[in-house]
Write a protein that binds this DNA or RNA. Structure first.
Length: 459
DNA sequence: TGAAATGTTGGGGCG
DNA sequence: ACGCCCCAACATTTC
């Protein structure tokens, strides 16, 4: 008997190691590829650009490999699936789980609804190495500190099943003419101004490219990862974050690919970065308010100043601190910022400017191509000190020292803050008022001590 | 996945 | 030769 199956795509825009897809291809199934733009949560502007490219590539891939079309819809997921299920006489719905709190709630309702309608609903984990519900500490509760969490995960890492291959062939449900939307109709691309007009040269977005990046990283930079990862002027990180977020590559694929470096320090470090991603999802799973609420409630009484002009200077990269401004401009112009610099600008915003981490989180959310609710909120809380296993309150980065350490020749600064590119390697780290370039917006010593006093009081 | 303040040590200049 | 001081350089403590 032939079963008609919807494969409901979310942040799993790939054909290889797509657990829901490989399941749907087993047995006597006819498949309908469905993508619904159901913004839960609302997607940031830069991420929308990446999503557009990812969908475009996925659409092309299924066309080329299976001569399949992607049915694109926008709106309420349940209503849309319901309508399609009825129209095409669907028997079964399969999808890979997502782990954002609102989406979990939404999907639970959807699953229940269709099961009651006697449809088969099958879900899979295709975006995490470890299912959050399966990792617990000895007392049966959840880990709140990264190291023991990751240690526990590592004891189970050899159980991870190998990535699935791309299904060779599949049967299709024939779509009616003009069913669904054109990709353009989703309004994912910026119009006026089109700030992403040169982004095609920055990102090739495809499943194939995700694997190329992973391999390029492993072949050329993994061995130097421990040291190299900290220098924003160099290209020593994997650059995989947006591809991971939208599922153009899975963490299991990355893990298996990286096994040739087994035992290497670079690999362990790299895997622990994957581990932080897992930990972020894990925390979000057990503490669904993570994007809004301080994990440590002591921080609820933190006297944030939230000065609007200060925030704007930070957002525009006009703080007068070259390293900070380089980072903020890299973010604005490219939708990405080097991890080392993310920590420094976040520390500056929360500690030197006393601006609420949630405001910084929102800015990153809108500007990053790799915006990820779990990673973004967990990381901002980590920097602010309000998070689980957070940086201690007194760990305040000095943007000048960080600049001297991690951009010793000022290459990163020169690239993004050209107004001061003529300064010497020595001078370039220090705030200088030059023409359009502003004076330092705060006194580091003063603002540091002010933050210390406040943090000391509330913790 | 800090930085600054404070403490300790040891070499060298000097009377 | 010796004690004294200075001050890097490193170590420890504190925030």
């Amino acid at each position: 008997m032939i079963k008609k199956t919807i494969i409901w795509l979310k942040n799993d825009l790939r054909l290889s190691d797509n657990r829901a897809l490989s399941h749907a291809c087993k047995g006597n199934n006819k498949i309908l590829f469905l993508y619904i733009l159901d913004e839960t949560p609302a997607i940031g502007a830069a991420s929308k650009w990446f999503l557009y490219k990812a969908l475009k590539s996925f659409k092309e891939d299924i066309k080329q490999k299976y001569n399949a079309d992607l049915l694109i819809k926008s709106g309420n997921s349940k209503d849309i699936i319901d309508q399609i299920a009825k129209k095409y006489d669907i028997d079964s719905i399969v999808y890979n789980r997502v782990y954002e709190p609102d989406a979990i709630k939404r999907d639970a309702k959807i699953k229940e609804y269709f099961q009651q309608m006697n449809l088969e609903v099958k879900t899979f984990n295709s975006s995490l190495l470890f299912e959050p519900s399966k990792i617990k500490n000895l007392s049966g509760s959840y880990f709140k500190v990264f190291t023991p969490f990751w240690k526990k995960c590592l004891t189970q890492i050899s159980n991870i099943d190998a990535p699935h291959k791309i299904p060779k062939s599949l049967e299709l449900i024939k779509l009616e003419q003009n069913e669904g939307l054109n990709l353009q109709d989703l309004n994912l691309l910026p119009q006026s101004p089109n700030w992403a007009k040169n982004w095609d040269s920055l990102y090739k977005v495809s499943e194939e490219e995700a694997h190329n990046l992973a391999e390029d990283f492993m072949n050329n930079r993994m061995l130097n990862y421990v040291e190299g990862r900290d220098f924003p002027a160099t290209n020593n990180t994997s650059f995989l974050s947006p591809y991971l977020h939208f599922g153009l590559i899975s963490p299991k694929q990355i893990y298996f690919k990286s096994m040739i470096f087994s035992g290497n320090a670079g690999l362990n470090h790299f895997l622990s970065e994957i581990g932080w991603r897992e930990f972020s999802y894990y925390l979000l799973y057990y503490f669904p308010d993570l994007p809004q609420k301080n994990f440590k409630s002591k921080f609820d009484s933190f006297p944030w100043e939230n000065n609007k002009e200060d925030l704007e200077k930070w957002q525009k990269g006009m703080t007068g601190f070259p390293f900070i401004d380089a980072g903020m401009r890299q973010l604005w112009n490219t939708g990405w910022m080097h991890n080392r610099v993310r920590m420094v600008v976040a520390s500056f915003l929360t500690k030197n400017l006393l601006i609420d981490w949630r405001i910084g989180e929102r800015w990153f959310w809108d500007c990053l191509v790799d915006s990820d609710l779990a990673a973004n909120s967990a990381s901002w809380q980590w920097v602010a000190g309000s998070g689980a296993d957070a940086a201690p309150y007194f760990r305040i980065f000095n943007p000048i020292t960080q600049s001297q350490k991690f951009d010793p020749k000022g290459e990163y600064i020169r690239k993004w803050v050209p107004e001061i590119a003529h300064l010497s390697d020595k001078e370039i780290h220090y705030p200088v008022h030059r023409d359009e370039y502003p004076e330092a917006m705060v006194d580091l010593k003063f603002s540091r001590n002010r933050a210390l006093a406040i943090y000391k009081k509330i913790s």
